[in-house]
Computed example of a mutant assay.
Amino acid sequence: KIVAAYVEGVKNGRRFYRTLQELSAVKPVVVLKGGITKAGASVAASHTASLAGSHGVWTSVLHQAGAIGVDTLDEMVDMLVTLQYMPGLEGKRLAMLGVGGGAGVLATDDWDKAGFVLPELPEQIRQAFRVALGNDAGTILSNPVDIPHLGFGHEAFGSALRKISDFGGIDLLVFHLPIRGIMLSLAVAPVLLDRESETILKLHRESGKPIAVVAHYMATGEGWH
């Protein structure tokens, strides 16, 4: 179903490109390129006796062939898991809901660099989130939508989520949930995490829209321990 490859270099560039293009047309191909720096390329050459090539050239080749390039083993594993469970998308339009304005800005940069588009949400949807969140002062509601952890679980918030999920202007709904170390040290943390999970799972069961959850741990202070 999915092809993953670690590549240091190739001996026949045209044959590699042609094979990669043909394979990418029928199934996802994920490639981790080793030796992207001058020092790494030198080691790769002595390891496999093949031509490593520049990072820019490799990025262009993978893009033109329709393959997916990753930079680390962790990123490769994340990509393979995503491809295994995520259905094919009809387009590259997404709506993102996340905790933290700064984290949302950084995530938006990543989506844009990956070729995705975050269209502005209709006023009807933004109004639904204003009602759900109580006050939109200092909160991003256009796309991405900046949401608090405490927003999950409320009926008004669930209604707003259904509206954004039903919106025909997006192909993917993404939840961006940074979990801070200090949050995990609080007694209320398990309740919040369970509430978030159940809200998203309920939406997934009721909606035909592909949904992705990006959750990462942000350690601060004693929370690291």
Rank of each mutant, 00 (worst) to 15 (best):
V29E: 03
L118W: 09
G100K: 13
G138K: 10
I68E: 03
E123N: 07
H216D: 12
S60Q: 12
L141F: 11
V57R: 00
P119F: 02
G34P: 03
L32A: 08
T48M: 10
V213S: 12
L89T: 13
K11C: 01
E155L: 12
V145K: 03
V81G: 10
A187M: 04
N143T: 05
I68W: 01
E155I: 11
V188F: 08
P210E: 04
T199L: 01
E155D: 15
Q64W: 00
M76I: 08
L80Q: 14
A4Q: 04
V10M: 04
A44K: 12
A215D: 06
L133K: 02
V188H: 04
V81D: 15
Q21N: 06
L172N: 05
I170R: 01
L32V: 11
N12P: 00
V70K: 03
A5I: 07
F129N: 05
A189L: 03
A103N: 15
K27N: 02
K11N: 13
E22M: 06
D112P: 00
G91A: 13
S24F: 01
P122H: 02
A95T: 13
L118R: 12
G98I: 11
A52E: 08
R162V: 07
V145W: 05
N135P: 00
S24I: 01
I147R: 10
G223M: 07
I125S: 04
L192A: 11
L20D: 07
V61D: 00
P28Y: 05
A137F: 14
D136K: 08
D110Q: 13
H154V: 11
A5D: 04
G102T: 13
T108V: 06
G69P: 03
V10P: 01
A45G: 04
Y17L: 00
S165V: 06
L150A: 15
A45L: 14
D74G: 14
K92P: 06
T220M: 04
P144G: 09
Y217W: 12
L20S: 02
W111K: 03
Q64M: 05
A65T: 04
G9M: 05
S185Y: 04
G34F: 05
E22N: 10
M86K: 15
G102N: 12
L20C: 07
Q21H: 06
A45Q: 15
E8I: 00
S159W: 04
G104V: 11
T82K: 15
L161P: 07
S24K: 02
M86T: 14
S24W: 01
G104Y: 09
Q127K: 00
W111L: 07
G115L: 05
S46M: 09
G181P: 03
E8M: 01
G115E: 08
G138I: 12
